[in-house]
Amino acid sequence: MMISAFKNFNLGRSVPKSVAIHGVLMAYTVIALFPILVVIINAFKERRAIFRDPLAMPTMDSFTLVGFEQVLLRSDFGLYSWNSLVVTLLAVGLVLLLGAMAAWALTEYKFRTNLLITFLFAMGIMIPIRLGTVSILRLMVDLNLVNTLTALVLVYIAQGLPLAVYILSEFIRTIPKELKEAARCDAVSEYKIFFCIILPLLKPAMATVAVFTMIPIWNDLWFPLILAPGEETRTITLGVQQFVGQYVTDWNSVLSALTMAIVPVLVLYTIFSRQLIRGLTSGAVK
């Protein structure tokens, strides 16, 4: 079935072909967006109207903002969003910086433990940090970091580093040797080579790493629940989850809360989306 699909779509530059391509892509776009739209549409509808016809657009009669009012009144969405933003930006920023530095060290310099460390990081891609939760919790208690955003940032850095090191290492390998050699001939320091020559070149790959690191951090439920469940440190995902748990029968409020959680992600993503593709495509070949 797949093969015949390719056959059709690759036949010449005919009009039917492009119609078919758009048809398939559009159909899938609808599948991808429809559920999200259902949430957003119903967030603006009155409780009974949601149940009467979940697919109807809000009308003059059924339009209401009461759900949003409830959410803003009963939970501290501003604080939760701020916490999420702080944690995500700090963690992603540090993953990028430390990951790039480590990737550089591992690809550029030869030393005795290089292979071991590379292997350790590679394992991290495959073994989820979550399996070590008990010990992480004990560790954070000993460090007096429970219920702080710092605990989350540290764990997320540890979680994000392996993939960052892997992708950035692959990318660094594609950087022409001549660049570095030339700099070394001019007796430029290793630090300067990295920060002034290599780091700027890594930008496109960093966008990819940023997106793939950001998604799981922003959406994580596990570590906020265990390491920082306090009101002051609650992230938006945890906040929404608890709100949904608390007001599960009050669908106005739940749908409004979900809508408010969807919007910032989509905005962030739209901003990063172009860099993501640029990063992905400039990965291997030059």
Binding site: L98, G99, M101, A102, W104, A105, L106, Y109, F111, I117, L120, F121, G124, I127, I129, L131, G132, T133, V134, S135, I136, L139, L154, V155, I157, A158, Q159, L161, P162, V165, S189, E190, Y191, F194
Partner: peptide
């Protein structure tokens, strides 16, 4: 020192908050 500088911070965080907890588990 430059290797320590480049690799140290990442390795420290990674060992402390990922490798050690996993081994401990």
């Amino acid at each position: 020192w430059h290797i320590v500088f480049f690799l140290g911070p990442a390795l420290l965080i990674y060992l402390t908050f990922s490798v050690y907890p996993l081994l401990d588990t």
